[in-house]
Design a protein around this nucleic acid. Structure first.
Length: 187
DNA sequence: AGACTGATATTCT
DNA sequence: GAATATCAGTCTA
């Protein structure tokens, strides 16, 4: 997964990251939920141009963008796009490697809640501001593309007040580790 | 199930 | 000052 993978529209990258494996210092698992953001998107941190916080989003693709959310949690994004200012938010993974370390870091919550949310997974993988701007193809990161496309569900992004209608949230169908269910069409 | 609320840092107006 | 790409706890059903 080099620059060729990331130098595409963030929605395409977000979809293709479902089923990929993400590890940080050996702890992690399969990505099961992502969201795409780009610079023409009022919900994106990059919408109003570069700032100190979002500098990584305007740097080279294939690097991490980590920011603090609500003053309490960290959120991990993968910088991508054909032009500067796009990224994919990693919202949930399936906990598969280093589960004991995740349990210790997460303070004994149920296993289903170890990594099922952007703040939760950063706590479980110990992702902080120190990872902001780091390359994803070097330690401590380890990112491996999936082998075949799994069943994918699509929906609206979570927790936004702008850009709510843009269907740029992607999930692994049927995964028990989604941060929230995907509403299913009647029928 | 769902609704509400507090905690908390950084950014931008 | 106000807003924010969240989470855990607590309450009402």
């Amino acid at each position: 997964m080099g620059p060729d993978f990331f130098a595409r529209h963030p929605a395409a990258v977000a979809r293709d990251l479902i089923g990929a494996r993400l590890l940080v210092a050996g702890v992690g698992g399969t990505i099961v939920e992502t969201e795409a953001y780009d610079d023409e998107d009022p919900a994106s941190h990059s919408f109003s141009g570069p700032t100190a916080r979002n500098a990584a989003m305007f740097g080279p693709v294939g690097h991490a963008y980590v920011y603090r959310s609500y003053g309490v949690h960290w959120c991990l994004n993968l910088v991508c796009g054909e032009t500067p200012g796009s990224a994919v938010l990693i919202r949930a993974i399936a906990p598969e490697h280093g589960i004991e370390r995740m349990r210790a870091r997460r303070g004994g919550v149920a296993d289903r809640l170890l990594t099922s949310g952007p703040g939760r997974l950063c706590q479980a993988l110990a992702v902080t501001r120190e990872h902001d701007g780091l390359r994803l193809d070097r330690p401590p990161f380890e990112l491996a593309q999936r082998e075949a496309e799994p069943p994918i569900v699509v929906g609206s992004r979570i927790g936004l007040t702008k850009g709510v209608e843009t269907p740029w949230r992607f999930g692994l169908k049927g995964s028990p580790f989604l941060s929230r269910p995907f509403p299913r069409a009647a029928g």
